[in-house]
Design a protein around this nucleic acid. Sequence first.
DNA 1: CGTTGAATTAATAGAGCTATTAAACATACT
DNA 2: AGTATGTTTAATAGCTCTATTAATTCAACG
Lengths: 207, 207
Amino acid sequence: MEVKNNPTMEIVILETAERLFLEKGFAMTSTTEIAKEIGCNQALIHYYYRTKENLFNIIFEKKFKQFFQNIFILENLDQLAFLDKLKHIIEAHFDMVRQNPRIPLLIVTEFSRNPEMVATLKEKLQGVVTSLFESLNTDLQAEIAAGRVRQITIIDLIFTVISINISLFLLLPVAAEIMTMDEKQKEFVINRRRDEHVKLILNGIRS
Amino acid sequence: MEVKNNPTMEIVILETAERLFLEKGFAMTSTTEIAKEIGCNQALIHYYYRTKENLFNIIFEKKFKQFFQNIFILENLDQLAFLDKLKHIIEAHFDMVRQNPRIPLLIVTEFSRNPEMVATLKEKLQGVVTSLFESLNTDLQAEIAAGRVRQITIIDLIFTVISINISLFLLLPVAAEIMTMDEKQKEFVINRRRDEHVKLILNGIRS
DNA sequence: CGTTGAATTAATAGAGCTATTAAACATACT
DNA sequence: AGTATGTTTAATAGCTCTATTAATTCAACG
């Protein structure tokens, strides 16, 4: 029995496939192309991962979890006032999406290709997500009761944060093309939008 | 020389292709499948449209224009105050996206497949869009000067409207699956979000 | 009724893709 | 050195897709 001391190829395949699937989606990426990109034989991909579908599912599951488990990182925020906490949440989520700008599109398109996959994965999240919701909801209700925040459900609030952050990175490529922006300008817009998202939401839920 | 008095097949092909391309995207839709769906011979599609790419481009261009030309319908809004006008704009745009919920995804995914296409089409829009922007911007600047609205660019404001409306219909299928919502509940959420978007933005740009 | 041009189909070339299989290669161990 | 085990490659079967071509059907018209 050998111990895998050098599992590079297996990992190189995974990483290359990950990049290509994120760039071009499942249907537009072939195992032939992944192999060509790496410079290895195409059969090797099937040796390690058996089918393209299987390879994709491994990657998708990883990305899906990564995306949802880190929706909101709530570390050391207990002592903050609700609106400061919310500001941190918006910014942390924004930064997370910024670092993984293509995952949302992957999830949305994969869902329309194969809803089953998402249906299977959701169970693993529900615990994490609902507990997070409840924690935030307690704070929110207190703020509403105190008259500092208008009537709004926690679902709507969270959905707004996710929506507005995600859609920036979804739409920016197209918008940048239409408005002929270069990379520098895109950077600038992204940073301005980060502040804008905070302002809009904090302001937008005032009573 | 015949006059086409019965161009049904040509149109049936276009409509069926349109539906399938919107449902499953370019790569996942084959001309074979379009033909099977219609019940005609596959060569017929190439007879009328020569290539799959060409057929797709015709549809894409149509949808792209449809989407951007109707971004904001500004009819009989002249007499309204800025915030009322904005409310109408948000709601009209929301309703337009609601009726064409899959176009944004089509545009975003097609852009990552072939940015050239969007680059080509943008020129035809720039006139319409910039004049719209300028008209709204005049109003916005007046409001800011009057101290009724906080400092914000017209680009950011419009981007926010588009973002939040689009992302609802982009994310709802996935969100509905994760939260196990039926059609009735989805309807309910959509209607609630419509109000919420108006509230959030009008509130969010207050000074 | 026969001709003409358009619409439709059948057949197929040519390409690319997925997946499998058997052979070659590499490496560690005895 | 020789064997065993894991890795990589070459070759290919089988499938599906796009696009073309030639043949067939259809419809109108003189």
